[in-house]
Amino acid sequence: MTTLAPSRPSFAASRLSFAGLLRSEWIKFRSLRSTFWSLVMIVGFAALISFLIVSEAMPASDVALPLAMQQDALAQGITQSVTFSQLIAGVLGVLIVTGEYSTGMIRSTMAAAPRRLGAYAAKILVVAVSIFVVGVIASLVSYLAVLPLLADRGIHVTPLDAVVMLGVLRASAYLALVSVFAVGVGMLLRSTAGGLATVSGLLLVLPIVLMMIPAEWAVNVEANMLTSLGADVLGLSSTVEAGEVLELFAKIAAWPAAAVALGGVVLARRDV
């Protein structure tokens, strides 16, 4: 009498689709305590900094400003907080990756997605979209915070104004790209301390050091640092040409593209 050998389970059928990976990454993203507090800090900083900018840097006036000046003033007033909140977005992007490595959850993630890059892409997409949406929300909350001050400063436009909304979308897109850059750095280094130090150094320390060096090459390098390019985005006026905006964002996107590519190479070649 012969016995049948038990059939081996098929793991191929149990592998997650990309939609499943997105759901998985979204659950992990929203369940982290650091995510909640980081997003709260982005919105809170936005409201506080916008209020300080409008109340201190924009003098009261009985005369309504020209429409273009109103649009630029409001757009910059409610988006300048990105200068500070980009560091929070960077910290969160690093923690989303390195937290999995520190807890060992990354093994479960890669067991469900053995090709690895699908899970990596899902993580990047979840972080980028979430930070972009929070950036838009932060700008709207900032508008509500400064609303009582606007009429006294000759500003009567709202964030629903097309020019102002474009400024909000540009700032939010930049914030999302910073978070993607941080995800790539986190995947490349796999260390919370190393990732946070690298992102903080590139966003804050290195630009300051370069500005202190009296050399042309230092000026050129500093002008193409992520934070300098971000400042250019926040300073764009309503008269800027579309080609200039695209060129600026192409330079900004080069940073997260390089970090994500290097992180992907490390993820594909090293053990988890």
Rank of each mutant, 00 (worst) to 15 (best):
L117K: 06
L117R: 13
G118D: 08
A119Y: 00
V127Y: 07
V127S: 08
V127A: 01
A128Q: 05
V129M: 02
V129C: 03
V129I: 12
S130E: 02
F132C: 12
I137D: 07
A138F: 12
S139F: 09
S139E: 11
S139P: 08
L140C: 11
L140D: 12
V141P: 05
S142A: 13
S142L: 12
Y143K: 08
L144Q: 06
A145G: 05
L147I: 03
L149D: 07
A151D: 10
R153P: 04
H156Q: 13
H156K: 09
H156W: 11
V164E: 11
V164Y: 07
G167S: 12
V168P: 12
V168N: 10
R170D: 04
A171P: 00
S172V: 04
A173D: 01
A173C: 13
L175W: 03
A176P: 03
L177S: 08
L177K: 01
L177D: 06
L177Q: 00
V178R: 01
S179M: 01
A182N: 08
A182C: 08
V183G: 00
G184W: 07
G186M: 05
G186W: 00
M187W: 00
L188S: 12
S191P: 09
A193N: 02
L196P: 11
L196G: 09
A197D: 11
V199C: 09
V199N: 11
G201R: 05
G201H: 00
G201N: 03
L202C: 10
L202H: 10
P207K: 06
L210M: 00
M212R: 09
M212G: 09
A215S: 11
A215C: 03
E216A: 13
A218D: 02
V219S: 14
N220V: 08
V221M: 11
V221I: 14
E222C: 07
A223T: 01
A223N: 11
A223P: 04
M225C: 14
L229K: 03
G230L: 02
G230W: 04
A231N: 15
A231Q: 15
D232K: 15
D232A: 15
D232S: 15
V233N: 02
L234H: 00
L234Q: 05
L234F: 03
G235V: 07
L236F: 13
L236M: 14
S237W: 03
S238Y: 01
T239D: 14
T239R: 12
E241S: 15
A242Y: 03
G243F: 01
G243E: 06
L246I: 13
E247W: 12
L248T: 07
L248Y: 09
F249G: 10
A250Q: 08
A250T: 14
K251C: 11
I252N: 05
W255I: 15
A257G: 04
A257Y: 09
A258C: 08
